[in-house]
Amino acid sequence: MSIHMPLNEHRAIEDFQLSAHDDHLEPGDIILDLENVSLAFGGVKAINDISFNIKKGEVRAIIGPNGAGKTSMLNVINGFYHPQQGTITYRGEKRTAMQSTEAAKQGISRTFQNIALFKGMSTLDNIMTGRITLQNKNLFLQALWHGPAAKEDIEHRLVVEKIIDFLEIQHIRKTPVGRLPYGLQKRVELGRALAAEPALLLLDEPMAGMNLEEKEDMSRFILDVNSQFGTTIALIEHDMGVVMDISDRVVVLDYGRKIGDGSPEEVSNNQAVIDAYLGVSHD
């Protein structure tokens, strides 16, 4: 089989769909519900009695000053930290202490604030690793390679190549990611998260350290993922311009508490949010 990509048509991949996890939810239904969640490390309360929800198919921004507990929030959602109090309902099922590998299998995927790519591997291998929850040929078949294991690998490579095309990173597919510039690394990380075909995609400051052009590119990719594949996205972001432009709803955290929740306009006019984080512009 061969793949021919017309050179100047990016993202015109009609036949490419990330299969959403079958969860009987319609767009607009609540896919993740956090109620009275609290998380403490020793004496420090990172998350203090926070409740909010995320609807399927929306782009939900989580904003707030540094140390507000945003990354901890993502870590809770994806099973890396377990809250001492509160309930988490994901896709209609109450979750207790879910392990992060289990969360991955349930369709939660994420990127990290300080890039967590596998530096010893190439772009292609990194994104292929994102497929790992979907691969299952056992050790003995892998040892023989030729036959079922090779066939499975090639099928998954097909999907990964489509993601590579979608993100326009064909030229660096064999490059060890450690050698890539920062902006491209962030894109590869997005690709790796997409490869798992997530129902809920968590992005931790995907545009940190990028210039205007790179931010525009990344915003387009995020919006495309959301519109083309229907993936629900929760993102932490500091650039208020980006938040206003691409998110459907925003939740604002400060010192581990929720101080705002609503549409971008509502939140930017919320006095508590202005005091804590946004500030007032002096014209």
């Binding site: 590998t101 991955a104 995927s109 967590a116 596998f118 790992i132 929850t133 040892a143 499975e152």
Partner: peptide
Amino acid sequence: NLTRGRVGRGWMAMRDMDIAAEIMG
């Protein structure tokens, strides 16, 4: 054979960033 496919990638992921690897499944 083992190192070129799923198993090898899982090993290398563990080596490079075990926490991220675990979070990815």
